[in-house]
Design a protein around this nucleic acid. Structure first.
Lengths: 121, 121
DNA sequence: TGCTATAGTACCTAAAAAGATACTTAAGGC
DNA sequence: GCCTTAAGTATCTTTTTAGGTACTATAGCA
């Protein structure tokens, strides 16, 4: 039985670790949990990410079935990203992470932290 | 205001991302959420991790104040690791992750998944 | 005297993730 | 004709993570 968790493809925790690892993924999911966004909308919210990185992270999340990608056949291109049904199930986790992170910053760094409304525009 | 989240050292979500990123960190926290463990106890539960990596991840978690390290001055050495008060606050998140991961595996991979009791020995 | 056990370090290499920069596509407006 | 726009690719370099192997310290034991 314990063997199962040793095999990395079947342990729930390792699955989650794989899904959310990546410098921008939980941020992207966090923004998309609020509403669907176009590529550039996300990019604006992550000012330090490069186009390549963003594309890559979005593709990975799409592959993992957490987000969908809807292409409108127009010029210039219009592409919308949003959470899938599976992806929406991760929202409570993101909310708890935000709560924890805020508390952590206060306690460990003793810094005042922005409210959810502000940090997720 | 939105500036705050742009500065990576003060956004709760980025904070969390930094804390838990690392191939073994959420697994380590997950095991320690059950009880304090000695170095080799953790190593046994993560059979594919090298000693160097485990030490490194433990040091990082310790630096971030999520776990404590208690050294007993004996020979051969005995060192115990456990969650700090701050670290304990992350347990509900880990539990939700486990729930999500299990559901995800079922849905996306259609695989039967071990129960929490078994996967966290 | 040499062996075992535990929790590491040190040093080097390989692989993965991230970043920088330049290029692409095609409709609509000037 | 040329510029703009949005959402990318392509290619190369740098940085970060991770892995491999060997080595250390020291008490107790045979």
């Amino acid at each position: 039985m314990k063997e199962k968790c040793v095999k990395y493809d079947i342990c729930p925790m390792i699955m989650v670790q794989k899904i959310i690892s990546g410098k921008w993924k939980i941020l992207i999911l966090w923004y998309l949990s609020y509403k669907t966004l176009r590529f550039n909308d996300i990019k604006k919210r992550l000012p330090y990410v490069t186009q390549k990185m963003l594309t890559q992270q979005l593709r990975s999340l799409e592959e993992d079935n957490l987000i969908f990608r809807k292409v409108y056949p127009v010029v210039p291109p219009k592409v919308e990203y949003g959470l899938t049904e599976v992806g929406k199930k991760i929202i409570p986790i993101l909310e708890m992470m935000h709560g924890f992170g805020a508390e952590y910053l206060e306690q460990v760094y003793d810094k005042e932290v922005n409210s959810p409304e502000i940090s997720r525009p």
